[in-house]
């Protein structure tokens, strides 16, 4: 009697473990298959590599290149870069507070006939660095500050791109 209930418990235990394993593997396969649909944005390099169909609407993400921002009333143009490739973006509308040169941003829109990315929405990507202003100032003063130079937002973005850029190209 006790033995019987023990094996039943063991059976349930194996069933639960196997079920979870199967579910995990299945989910992993589905997520890998839909990799390209889950990524939120593409880098200028990936766009240059032709990962996005030319007339398709998509999001491009990267750093606002230093000295590239030209504001003309509500019209803004700037260059978004991943330190490898870059892309000219034009946008009309309100920019988020965090938008500035060296900041990680994500723009949604499409490439027009002149090869310029016309954005209908620009979002600021916040990085995972949190510090008081005095600490940021001290870092800048001591020269250990390298915002927009592959550290901070840039690192976050290039790191975020790693899994997709190392994955085998899905679309030929």
């Amino acid at each position: 009697m006790i033995g019987a209930s023990k094996t039943r418990k063991q059976r349930r235990l194996y069933f639960v473990i196997l079920g979870l394993l199967g579910l995990g593997v299945g989910t992993a396969l589905v997520l890998t298959a839909f990799q390209d649909n889950i990524v939120f944005f593409w880098s200028p390099t990936q766009v240059a590599e032709g990962k996005v169909a030319p007339e398709q609407r998509f999001r491009v993400g990267g750093l606002v290149e230093n000295g590239s921002v030209v504001k003309n009333g509500e019209n803004v143009s700037f260059t978004v870069t991943d330190m490898n490739s870059s892309m000219k973006v034009e946008y009309t509308g309100l920019l988020p507070d965090l938008f500035r040169e060296g900041q990680g941003i994500i723009a949604e829109g499409r490439i027009d006939s002149k090869g310029v990315f016309v954005a209908s929405e620009v979002l600021a990507k916040h990085d995972e660095n949190y510090m008081p202003r005095e600490v940021a100032d001290a870092l800048k003063k001591s020269g250990r500050w390298n915002e927009g130079q592959g550290k901070g937002a840039g690192e976050a973005i290039s790191e975020g791109l790693k899994p997709t850029s190392t994955a085998p190209a899905a679309n030929p």
Binding site: Q35, V39, D127, E128, E159, G160, P163, T164
Partner: peptide, 13 residues
Amino acid sequence: SVEWWNTLHQPSI
């Protein structure tokens, strides 16, 4: 999610 795919959400602190 913030490591496997690029997201708008920032990575883990």
